[in-house]
């Protein structure tokens, strides 16, 4: 009797182990396949474009000759656009997320807003481009400038930032809030001093996912009328005379890396295809640096939270 029980237990355990094994193998296979596809893509880009990346490529303007062409105007454009996008989308998105989670009364209006925010995250980017063309460029007469480019990408990633902020805020233990209220903090103090710091890592992840999406977008930027050939840079934001900063660059025409890549890949000369691969690699690198910075920041914030 005891023996029979023992063997049947052993059989169940063995069967579970087999199931575990099968699932682990399956999981690893899927992971390997995904990684293999990515690795092949990156390796292909590298074999085509890595040798092309040098100082000349980074400091030259586009040119009709593939070997003397560069992406100076494109990477400066991408950097400035990302700055505008980050400065608009992150404060707005985090603010909206905190409001919805901590302040907003729970009734049908909030539900409508919630559903809409989630839906907006799935709207194709070209729609945002058309909106920006109709509203910012023509409606408000803002023209095809860095500011408008940053604004359209900020709109595009706003839902991502909002949803991530809400998730992060929601995951803060309610005990933390209650103890803060218990010692007499008002709502603002609770949010600013306790909830927000605890939610920061999650918010940061959301912001970075959003910005990584924005950096590779072509369609909305082309729709608002970004240029392709531009052989000068926006005015410098820092100047020698008072007041030392100027914002003229916001009104400057621009191009970005994905547009430059898109243009080069469809050209007949093989030299341009190499340039496109090199641009792709650099775009990957920029995304990686951005992600690395966020991971670094998150790590330090976690540590400061514990101490």
């Amino acid at each position: 009797m005891a023996d029979a029980l023992h063997t049947s237990e052993a059989r169940i355990v063995a069967a579970s182990r087999v199931q575990d094994m099968v699932f682990a193998v399956l999981g690893i296979t899927v992971l390997l396949m995904a990684m293999a596809v990515l690795a092949t893509l990156v390796a292909d880009l590298m074999s085509d474009g890595l040798a092309r990346i040098d100082q000349q490529f980074l400091t030259s303007f586009p040119s009709r000759r593939p070997e003397s062409a560069g992406i100076l105007s494109a990477w400066v454009g991408t950097t400035l656009i990302m700055l505008v996008t980050a400065f608009l989308a992150i404060p707005l998105g985090v603010g909206a997320g905190i409001y919805l989670e901590e302040y907003a009364p729970k009734h049908w209006m909030t539900d409508v807003i919630e559903i809409n925010v989630s839906n907006l995250a799935g709207v194709p980017s070209i729609i945002y481009g058309l909106l920006a063309l109709g509203f910012f460029v023509y409606g408000l007469g803002m023209g095809q400038t860095i500011l408008v480019g940053g604004m359209v990408l900020a709109l595009l990633i706003l839902p991502i930032v909002i949803v991530a902020t809400r998730e992060a805020v929601r995951s803060v233990p309610s005990g933390l809030r209650e103890s803060a209220y218990g010692v007499g903090c008002n709502r603002w103090q609770v949010v600013w001093r306790y909830v927000l710091p605890a939610a920061r890592p999650g918010i940061l992840t959301g912001a970075i996912v959003g910005l990584s999406r924005a950096i590779g977008e072509t369609a909305p930027i082309i729709t608002i009328g970004a240029l392709t050939f531009i052989a000068f840079l926006p005015p410098s934001p820092i100047q020698a005379t008072a007041p030392f900063v100027n914002f003229d660059w916001l009104n400057s025409p621009f191009t970005v890396m994905p547009i430059q890549m898109f243009n080069w890949i469809s050209r007949p000369q093989a030299g341009f295809h190499v340039n496109a691969a090199a641009t792709g690699l650099l775009l990957l690198l920029m995304t990686l640096v951005m992600n690395g910075f966020a991971i670094f920041l998150r790590y330090h914030l976690r540590r400061s939270l514990r101490s």
């Binding site: 950097t79 980050a86 820092i238 400061s304």
Partner: peptide, 27 residues
């Protein structure tokens, strides 16, 4: 914590500033 958060925001700003400054100064 507030100071730290402010420092992080500042670092973000500074990082951006150097990036577009190096671009703007070329020409």
């Amino acid at each position: 914590k507030i100071i730290l958060c402010g420092a992080a925001a500042l670092a973000l700003t500074a990082c951006g500033k150097t990036a577009d400054k190096s671009g703007g100064e070329v020409k």
